[in-house]
Simulated assay, not measured.
Amino acid sequence: MFLTKQLRFTLQSTSFVVVLAACVGATILYAGVNESGGEFGVFGSPGTGLPGEFGVTYDFIAESTVDTFVDTNQINFFRVTFLMERMCPLATGLGSTFNETYFSEYEDAINYITVTKGAYALIDPHNYMVRRIFYSDPSSQPNSGSIIGDTTDPSAATTEQFQEFWTELATRFVDNPNVVFGINNEPHDMATSLILQNDQAAINGIRSTGATQLILAPGNGFTGGHSWTQVTGANDDPSSEWLNQIVDPLNNTAIDIHEYLDEDFSGSHDTCTQPGPTNLAALTTWLQENNLKAIVSEFGGSNDPTCLEMVPELINYLSENDVYIGWSAWAAGPFWGTNSPCCGPEVGSLEPGQLDEEGGPNGYTTVWQAVIQPNINLSDLKRSGVSSLS
Score class of each variant (00 low, 15 high):
residue 87 M to D: 05
residue 274 Q to C: 03
residue 166 W to A: 00
residue 179 V to C: 01
residue 334 P to K: 06
residue 168 E to G: 05
residue 28 I to G: 04
residue 275 P to N: 11
residue 241 E to L: 13
residue 202 A to H: 12
residue 112 Y to M: 08
residue 113 I to Q: 09
residue 375 N to A: 05
residue 69 F to K: 13
residue 79 R to L: 08
residue 104 S to V: 00
residue 151 T to Q: 13
residue 224 G to W: 01
residue 61 I to K: 12
residue 287 L to D: 05
residue 275 P to Q: 11
residue 222 F to C: 06
residue 135 Y to P: 02
residue 108 D to N: 13
residue 278 T to I: 13
residue 147 I to E: 10
residue 329 A to Q: 10
residue 64 S to Q: 13
residue 286 W to D: 07
residue 316 N to P: 00
residue 83 L to N: 09
residue 360 G to T: 00
residue 91 A to D: 11
residue 126 H to F: 07
residue 342 C to S: 14
residue 62 A to P: 02
residue 349 S to Q: 05
residue 178 N to W: 07
residue 116 T to G: 05
residue 310 M to T: 04
residue 29 L to F: 00
residue 172 R to A: 02
residue 243 L to N: 04
residue 222 F to R: 12
residue 133 I to F: 01
residue 258 H to S: 10
residue 260 Y to E: 08
residue 129 M to P: 01
residue 378 L to H: 11
residue 112 Y to R: 04
residue 161 Q to A: 15
residue 306 T to Y: 02
residue 39 E to L: 07
residue 73 N to D: 14
residue 97 T to F: 04
residue 49 G to R: 07
residue 118 G to K: 05
residue 62 A to R: 08
residue 299 F to R: 06
residue 277 P to T: 12
residue 152 T to M: 03
residue 31 A to K: 01
residue 334 P to N: 07
residue 62 A to E: 09
residue 242 W to T: 02
residue 121 A to Y: 05
residue 283 L to S: 08
residue 76 N to T: 00
residue 175 D to S: 15
residue 82 F to V: 06
residue 36 S to C: 12
residue 281 A to S: 15
residue 116 T to A: 15
residue 328 S to K: 03
residue 61 I to R: 09
residue 184 N to D: 11
residue 233 G to D: 09
residue 176 N to P: 07
residue 289 E to Q: 14
residue 192 T to W: 01
residue 3 L to N: 13
residue 368 W to G: 00
residue 61 I to E: 09
residue 274 Q to Y: 00
residue 226 H to F: 11
residue 216 L to W: 11
residue 10 T to K: 14
residue 203 I to S: 10
residue 89 P to S: 03
residue 213 Q to M: 10
residue 21 A to I: 01
residue 241 E to I: 02
residue 35 E to L: 12
residue 339 N to A: 13
residue 131 R to L: 01
residue 134 F to N: 15
residue 314 L to Y: 03
residue 245 Q to L: 12
residue 251 N to R: 00
residue 365 T to C: 02
residue 142 P to A: 10
residue 233 G to T: 08
residue 362 N to R: 01
residue 374 P to I: 05
residue 112 Y to P: 06
residue 45 S to T: 15
